[in-house]
Amino acid sequence: MADNERKSLGSRITGSMVWTSIFRTPFPTTRSERLKSILNNVFLHLHPAKLSRHAVKLKYTWCMGGLSFYLFIVLTISGILLMFYYRPTVEYAYTDIVDLSEQVPMGIMREIHRWTAHMMVITVLLHMFRVFMTGSYKPPREFNWVVGVLLLTLTLFLSFTGYLLPWDQLAIWAITVGTNMARATPFLGHEGPGAALLAIGDINLVTMSSDVRFALLGGRFVGESALLRFYVLHCVALPFIIMIMMSVHFWRIRRDGNISGPL
């Protein structure tokens, strides 16, 4: 009994049955515990347990890949919080956004979401730049570079679809400019080269109400259905795809021999 009373509260918690059932290894102090702490944790085991010394240097990695992933998590959390208050309809979208900053004391959730989004585009671009400048796309990592380019594209699309949601002048005209290009898609846009060839007799198959821009907007101009489509793409479809691609990306980093380095 006397022994138990001298134990601190902290060690009682970390020694409890519940705690040890969650964390199999105690706070690591020895070499083998440190190795185990990485292997036994689902989040930390994204990493190998040991790395070459250069791989942990900031001037080599710039930490850009890791930061991109972190910013994605920040965006997911702040995005979920925003979804509680935001309704993607022409009637409510703009006023909901106004309320986020006017009705909430210190309401900066939208700021966090928007600036984090800009930041993520920058970190993903710089991550690509770092990977190129260290020649890390070379075999055996060539396919992971391809996955990375897809992730960059998805990041841009995520940012682009989110741009419409505040439903202000900046949003709808930026999306109008962006999606107007889609009408010139060769064969698939009604003002694209070759679209006129896709016709049965005199009936054009690719028209203003059937081309790729129409599919993207759900209409002939940026309106109610475009807002809903961009909302679903932004909050569900693209995050779903990007999470799958990220899993592949991280998995392949480990499979392709961890981070690149000189042989």
Binding site: I38, L44, H47, A49, K50, L51, S52, V56, C63, G66
Partner: peptide, 13 residues
């Protein structure tokens, strides 16, 4: 000359 990810990388991150 390898380093352990805990603590050398985890703390930097």
């Amino acid at each position: 000359e390898k380093v352990l990810v805990w603590p050398d990388l985890v703390f930097i991150e």
